[in-house]
Nucleic acid binder design. Structure first.
Length: 423
RNA sequence: GGAGGCGUCGCCUAGUCCGGUCUAUGGCGCCCGCCUGCUAAGCGGGUUUGGGUCUUAAAGCCCAUCGCGAGUUCAAAUCUCGCCGCCUCCGCCA
């Protein structure tokens, strides 16, 4: 949720943000009107209620004719109070419904435009020249099958399209990646977490995934629970309705959980292999910090993502996404795109968002600061999305014979092995 | 899945049967002050949260808030119904 104070004092800023996102600007005027109505209704109710309370006390003390007269008057008043209360409730509901549609205020220097208008900030690593090495690179699925690491046929047999089994060395590779990611997180003061992957509507709603993103989310009708698309959801909701100790901030969590995505609307896209799947496991970083520290913390999260990708020796670029591609909660978002030799382009492997106080307001996560109690800022960042990372390792480190060299950093977690080899 | 118990302003707790003087009691903790070689003790005051209003600011004032929601009533912590959470027991189960 955006700051209602900003809406009232600086509606132009909200308009500018909506414009940048490519979202409705007219909504801002609707919101202002709804806010006006809400405040008016509350005032009316409070005045009537005060009068009713005063009369109530007189009734308690009075007796005889006086009491009868007072009761008649106060009975009328009760009707009015009831009406005013209903009116103020309705006005609040209207306002809430509108305000939830408004995305977070985008930072003014975020690039304009949509999906294709990102800005490449950095490029790292050496892309291999397979032609010079004298062989054509195999894609991740072919490699996965040679190594006995990935089984998509049986994934489809058992669960349908976009499901897979990691088998043998593939499963070992995921376990090693989890351990490498968690050891990096632990070294940097993160609290490791294994959160629930099913959450209530309030957690989903609070993190901003029930807006435009709702069609991509699995919902269990019988139980009214959602399967999370990222550990961001249960980690953000972890401190919901709490007042945190400001001195304890930043609170950094590293959550390992499955991620479930319906991938509605991506029919026919990335259908080969495990690039785009309905389920994958992920180690996600999540931070609660003071609002004024959020921008710096965002850079740190990006730094840890880069450190991880560097350790895996994957060539990559850092992108800043355009305002139209941010999602409801983010005020700024950086993606890391890894080099995919067989597609001759960079593809997304990690993503980090600064959600400022947007999610904290919705989830009621506050801290006691010097100036009083207020919402904290939240940030999230991928440390390791297993399937995408496995793809990058396989394709970038493959050898002519179909084996895959393991980056140094990963070897301690695979019993010192230097490569994955076909059996 | 079944049966029972519980949920009060940081923690503990009184109040709920029998609705109004509850503006929610007391203790602990915490904060401020006094006293005091220092510390402790003692004494006095303060201490739910959210919103609004006023103010340079503070204080003040108003409304809501006794797990959540609905209902009855002129009036609900208190009565009724629904829901949620926790605990105990039974059943089932990795």
């Amino acid at each position: 949720m955006i700051d209602v104070k900003v809406l009232r004092t600086d509606p132009d800023r909200v308009r500018a943000s909506q414009r940048a996102r490519g979202e409705s600007v007219a909504l801002v005027d609707e919101l202002l009107a709804a806010e006006e109505a809400r405040r008016g209704a509350i005032t009316r109710f409070e005045e009537l209620r005060a009068e009713q309370k005063g009369l109530g006390k007189q009734v308690a003390r009075a007796s005889g004719d006086e009491r009868t007269a007072l009761l008649a008057r106060t009975k009328e008043l009760a009707e009015e109070v009831k009406k005013a209360e209903a009116g103020s409730g309705a006005a609040a509901t209207t306002f809430d419904a509108l305000v939830k549609q408004v995305g977070n205020l985008v930072f003014p220097d975020v690039p304009e435009g949509g999906e294709d208008d990102y800005v490449v900030l950095e490029t790292h690593g050496e892309r291999r020249d397979f032609a010079a090495e004298g062989f054509a690179p195999r894609d991740h699925l072919e490699l996965g099958q040679l190594l006995g690491a990935i089984d998509v046929e049986r994934g489809a047999k058992v669960s349908g399209s976009r499901f897979y089994y990691l088998t043998g060395q593939g499963a070992e590779l995921e376990l090693a990646l989890i351990n490498l990611a968690m050891s990096l997180a632990l070294r940097n003061g993160f609290i490791p977490m294994i959160p629930p992957a099913l959450v209530k509507p309030s957690a989903m709603e609070g993190t901003g995934f029930l807006g435009q993103a709702a069609q991509d989310v699995y919902h269990l009708e019988e139980d009214d629970l959602y399967l999370v698309g990222t550990a961001e959801v249960p980690l953000a909701a972890y401190h919901s309705d709490e007042v945190l100790d400001a001195a304890a901030l930043p609170l950094r969590y590293a959550g390992y959980s499955p991620s479930y995505r319906r991938e509605a609307g991506s029919y026919g896209k990335d259908t080969r292999g495990i690039f785009r799947v309905h389920w994958f496991d992920k180690v996600e970083m999540f931070v609660f910090c003071a609002p004024e520290d959020a921008a710096e913390e965002h850079q740190r999260l990006l730094g840890w993502e880069k450190e991880f990708i560097d350790a895996l020796e994957i060539p990559y670029q850092v992108l800043e996404l355009a305002a139209g591609d941010l999602g409801l909660s983010a005020a700024r978002k950086y993606d890391c795109y890894g080099w995919l030799p067989t597609q001759d382009r960079y593809r997304e492997i990690t993503s980090t968002s600064n959600c400022t106080e947007f999610q904290a307001r919705r989830l009621n996560v506050r801290a006691r600061f010097d100036g009083g109690t207020g919402p904290v800022a939240t940030l999230n960042g991928t440390l390791c999305a297993m399937t995408r990372t496995i793809i990058m390792i396989l394709e970038n480190h493959q050898q002519a014979d179909g084996s895959v060299r393991l980056p140094e950093a990963l070897r301690p977690f695979l019993g010192g092995r230097e490569a994955l080899v076909a059996r």
